[in-house]
Design a protein around this nucleic acid. Structure first.
Length: 736
RNA sequence: GCGCCCGUAGCUCAGCGGAUAGAGCGCUUGCCUCCGGAGCAAGAGGUCGCGUGUUCGAGUCACGCCGGGCGUACCA
C-alpha cells in the first residue's frame, strides 16, 4: 500500500495525507497503520480516499462499549457482533468530523472533501493537476514512467535457447518475458545487464550431428539464412529415427488404453497371427499385455520382428474402425479417448512408412550416437570442426529471432564454456566434503548437509558417473561467475517453473560452499505454453515451431492491413504488418500471469480483435492521427499548458488522466514483482479509456479552450501508450 | 509420500485487505455524410472450488480439504 506514488500525483497525495493526519490529530487520534490512500472509485471523480475511519471506528466503538460496561459478561463473539453493528455509523460520523476538520484548515487546498460510507474522499483541483500531469508527460517524453536512478545492477538471464534445435512457442514466452522484464526493471531505475545462456553442446547436438553426417553429409541449404532452421529439422529427424521403436510401442500402448474396438478385436488378430506362423509366445505376451492395458516391454520379445509383422494387421483394423465408425459411448470409470479413429490411423500410417526399414536399424543407430558422443568427449578435430560450423549456423538464426523481438544481450554465456569451470567446482566441493560420491557419481545431499530431517532440497547429482557434465555442473560455476566476474548485485534466472526445485538446489549448494552471494540470485519462473488440445510434446508431434507461428501471423497481419488500410504504401504495409503481427504474439505471451499456463490458441492469436496488442496499437495510431490533423507537435502543445482549461472535466477525461498518472507506480510494481502482466493490463486499460474518451468527447470539433486542453490530453495519452508498449518490447506504429 | 503452481461468467483471463467483482471471445440488439468501425453503446451471463479461522472489512491473508497440472539423484 503505497502512501505516496512515484508520479505527479504524489504531491497531491502527500498533501492529502498531511491534511488527514492533521485533522485526526485535532480529534486526538492517530492512524493505527500507515495511512492508506486509494483513488476514489467513482466515475467522474479525481482524488484520494482513505478508509482510516473504519479502522479507527472499530477501536473507538470497542472502547466506548467497554467503558460503558456494556460488554460485561458477554461472549467474545457477542462483543464482536455488537462492535460490528456500531462500526458503520461510527466510522461515517468520524469521517464527517475528519472532513470538517480538513475544510477548517486555513489553507483550503482541495476541490472537495466529503465523507461517504465511512470513507473520507478528497478531490483534487482536476484542471490544475491535469495541466501539471500533461506537462510532466510531455517534458519527460520517452522518460515518462521512469523511476529514480538506483545504483543496483541486476543481471537478467533469459532466452536460454539451444543451437541445433528449432525454437518453439515455449521459448517465445521466455524471450518475450525476458525482454519485457529487462526493459521494466531498467525503467524502474535499476542498471540492467541482460544475458543469455546458449545450449550449444549436449546430447541434442550430438544427435543432430550424427543424423547430419549419417544421412545428409555435406548438405547445406542454398540460402545461408535458412541453415539454422534446416539444422533444427535435422535434429527433429534424428529424434524421430532414434525414438522410432519407442514411438511404435507408445502407440500400441495408447491403442490398448483407449481404443475399445481394437482391444475387442484381439481374438481375430490372434487367429490371423497364428495362421501366419509367428512365434506363439511373443504373440501371447503382446496380446495379453494389450488386452489388459499393461506396459509393453519390447525387450521381452523373443523375436525382434513381432511388431513389424503385427503392423499391417493393425492397419487393417484401424482402417476398418474409420470406415465403420460407431458412435462413441462413454463407459463409467474409463477415461475419454484423447484421439479419434482418424488420428489413430494417421499415426499408424506415419509409422508404417518407415517400419520395415527403421525398426531394425534403431539399435545400431543408438550405438552410433554413443560413438559420436565419444568423439565429442575426446575432442575429435573433425567433429569439433563440424560442430563449430553448424553452431554458427544456429547462432545466426538465433540472432535473427532475438533481433525480431528486440532482445539484446550484454553477454552471451555458452554451455561449452562453462564445462571446465564446472568440473573444477565439483572437484572443490568434493575436496571440501560438501559433495560426496554416491552410487558412483558426485552428488550433494543437501538436506543432510543442512541438517534437515524433512525432505526439502533432496539430493542433486553434480556430475555424471562417466565424468561428463550436467546442467548443474555448469550452473554452479556460472552463478558464481555472475557475481565474481561481472560484479552484479542481483542475478535473475528467467526459466520455466518446472525447474524451481533445481534452482533452489543450486542456491543451497552455493550457500553450503560459503558463497553468500547466492542469496542474491533470484528465480523468476513462468508456466509453460499449452495448446487447446493439451500438452505440447515432441512425442505427440504437436510442437508449434516459432518459425511456423511467425509466418502464419505475418501472413494474417498482411491480409488484415490490406483490408483495413489498402491505401498504405507497400513499404509501410510491410513494416506495419511486422509490428502488428509480432506485437500480437508478444502481447499474448505477456498478458498472462507468469504462474499461469498459457493456452495458446492459434485461432485466437491470429484474430487481432479485442484484448490484444493491435487494439492498443490502434489507439496509439488514432491519437497520432488526431494530433497530425491538428498540426500540433508535442512542443507546440507544451506551450499551451499554462492555464490549460478543460472546463468541467468529463468522466472519460478524468478516467483517462488517472490512467496516465498511474504509469510510474505501475512500472515500480511490475519491476518489484517481476510481472510484465502489470504493464500489459495497464496499457490495455489506458487504450480502452482513450477509446471511451474520444468517442464521448470531440477533440478537433470542440470549442476553445476545451479544444486545446483535449489536444494536450491526446498528446499525453499518445506518449503514455508508446512508452508502455515500449516497456513490453512492442512497437507503436503511427498508422496501421 | 513430499514439494511447487493453478481453481473467479459458457470459454480465455484481470482483479495492490476496502465502497456495486471486471475485460476479451462467443451470444442478442443498435451505431459509419460525424477526429480511421482493428472501434463504440446496450443486454443476457457469477454459491469467486469447499470449509474453518484472522480482521471493523476476505475473491485477496492463514490453516485444512477437494479437483487439475508439474516436479521429486546421473533430462535440460
Amino acid at each position: 500500500m503505497p502512501v505516496a506514488g512515484a508520479g505527479i500525483i504524489a504531491r497531491e497525495e502527500r498533501q492529502t495525507v498531511e491534511a488527514i493526519t492533521a485533522a485526526l490529530a485535532e480529534l486526538g487520534l492517530a492512524p493505527p497503520r500507515p495511512l492508506d490512500l486509494r483513488p476514489i472509485p467513482f466515475a467522474g471523480t479525481w482524488g484520494a480516499a482513505t478508509s482510516v475511519c473504519r479502522a479507527l471506528a472499530s477501536d473507538l466503538v470497542a472502547r466506548d462499549l467497554d467503558a460503558a460496561g456494556e460488554t460485561d459478561g458477554l461472549s467474545k463473539k457477542e462483543i464482536k457482533r455488537r462492535v460490528n453493528e456500531a462500526v458503520p455509523a461510527r466510522s461515517q460520523q468520524l469521517a464527517e468530523q475528519v472532513a470538517a476538520g480538513i475544510l477548517a484548515q486555513p489553507e483550503r487546498r482541495f476541490a472537495a472533501v466529503e465523507a461517504v460510507n465511512g470513507y473520507v474522499n478528497i478531490s483534487f483541483d482536476a484542471n490544475a493537476v491535469a495541466a501539471r500531469l500533461i506537462g510532466e508527460v510531455l517534458s519527460l517524453g520517452a522518460g515518462y514512467g521512469r523511476g529514480e536512478a538506483r545504483p543496483e545492477r541486476v543481471m537478467i538471464e533469459h532466452s536460454q535457447l539451444n543451437t541445433h534445435k528449432a525454437a518453439h512457442v515455449g521459448h517465445l514466452r521466455n524471450i518475450c518475458l525476458g525482454v519485457a522484464l529487462t526493459k521494466i526493471i531498467d525503467a524502474a531505475g535499476y542498471r540492467t545487464m541482460p544475458v543469455t545462456y546458449i545450449g550449444d553442446i549436449g546430447m541434442h547436438v550430438v544427435k543432430c550431428l550424427w543424423c547430419y553426417e549419417r544421412f545428409h553429409p555435406g548438405q547445406e541449404p542454398e540460402d545461408p539464412a535458412a541453415r539454422g532452421r534446416w539444422l533444427g529439422e535435422i535434429y527433429a529427424e534424428s529424434d524421430r529415427r532414434l525414438n522410432f521403436r519407442k514411438d511404435v510401442v507408445a502407440f500400441v500402448q495408447l491403442l490398448s488404453r483407449e481404443d475399445q474396438v481394437f482391444v475387442g478385436a484381439i481374438d481375430r488378430l490372434l487367429k490371423y497371427l497364428w495362421r501366419k506362423n509367428t512365434d506363439g509366445e511373443d504373440i501371447a505376451y503382446l496380446l495379453g499385455r494389450v488386452i489388459q492395458a499393461q506396459e509393453l516391454k519390447p525387450e521381452l520379445f523373443r523375436e525382434d520382428d513381432v511388431l513389424p509383422k503385427f503392423w499391417p494387421l493393425l492397419g487393417d483394423q484401424l482402417r476398418d474402425e474409420v470406415e465403420n465408425q460407431k458412435p462413441y459411448v462413454p463407459v463409467e470409470g474409463v477415461p475419454d479417448p484423447t484421439t479419434t479413429p482418424e488420428e489413430r490411423l494417421e499415426t499408424w500410417q506415419r509409422l508404417a512408412a518407415d517400419m520395415d526399414d527403421w525398426w531394425y536399424q534403431v539399435p545400431a543407430w543408438q550405438d552410433e550416437v554413443k560413438e559420436t558422443f565419444q568423439r565429442w568427449e575426446r575432442k575429435d578435430p573433425d567433429f569439433v570442426a563440424l560442430w563449430e560450423t553448424t553452431r554458427r549456423w544456429s547462432l545466426d538464426d538465433l540472432g535473427r529471432i532475438f533481433g525480431e523481438f528486440g532482445a539484446t544481450f550484454d553477454h552471451w554465456f555458452f554451455e561449452s564454456g562453462a564445462e571446465e569451470p564446472g568440473r573444477a567446482m565439483v572437484q572443490d566441493l568434493l575436496e571440501r566434503g560438501i559433495a560426496e560420491i554416491s552410487d558412483g557419481l558426485p552428488v550433494v545431499k543437501i538436506d543432510q548437509k543442512l541438517g534437515l530431517t524433512t525432505e526439502t532440497y533432496r539430493t542433486l547429482p553434480i556430475l555424471r558417473s562417466d565424468g561428463t557434465t550436467l546442467y548443474a555442473t555448469k550452473d554452479l560455476a556460472l552463478t558464481r561467475q555472475k557475481f565474481d566476474e561481472f560484479g552484479v548485485d542481483r542475478a535473475l534466472w528467467v526459466v520455466d517453473l518446472r525447474q524451481s526445485l533445481y534452482f533452489q538446489q543450486i542456491k543451497k549448494i552455493l550457500e553450503l560452499a560459503g558463497y553468500e552471494r547466492a542469496a542474491d540470485a533470484e528465480y523468476v519462473g513462468y508456466e509453460w505454453v499449452a495448446l487447446p488440445e493439451g500438452v505440447i510434446s515432441s512425442r505427440k508431434g504437436n510442437v508449434p515451431l516459432f518459425a511456423d507461428l511467425e509466418r502464419e501471423t505475418l501472413e494474417r497481419a498482411h491480409a488484415v492491413i490490406a483490408e483495413k488500410n489498402p491505401d498504405l504504401p507497400a513499404d509501410d504495409k510491410e513494416r506495419v504488418a511486422r509490428q502488428v503481427g509480432l506485437g500480437a504474439i508478444q502481447y499474448a505471451m505477456l498478458a498472462r500471469d507468469n504462474t499461469k499456463v498459457i493456452v495458446y490458441d492459434p485461432e485466437e492469436a491470429l484474430s487481432f480483435d479485442g484484448h490484444a496488442a493491435p487494439y492498443v496499437q490502434y489507439a496509439h495510431a488514432r491519437a497520432c492521427r488526431i494530433l497530425e490533423r491538428a498540426e500540433r507537435t508535442d512542443e507546440a502543445t507544451a506551450a499551451t499548458l499554462d492555464g490549460l482549461d478543460f472546463g468541467t472535466l468529463e468522466p472519460t477525461e478524468l478516467a483517462l488522466l488517472q490512467a496516465i498518472a498511474a504509469l510510474p507506480d505501475e512500472v515500480q510494481r511490475a519491476a518489484a514483482e517481476f510481472r510484465p502482466l502489470v504493464i500489459a493490463s495497464h496499457v490495455y486499460d489506458l487504450a480502452k479509456r482513450f477509446n471511451d474518451f474520444y468517442h464521448a468527447c470531440p477533440v478537433l470539433q470542440s470549442e476553445e479552450p476545451t479544444r486545446t486542453a483535449r489536444l494536450a490530453l491526446v498528446a499525453a495519452t499518445r506518449r503514455a501508450l508508446a512508452n508502455e508498449l515500449g516497456l513490453l518490447g512492442i512497437a507503436a506504429p503511427e498508422e496501421m
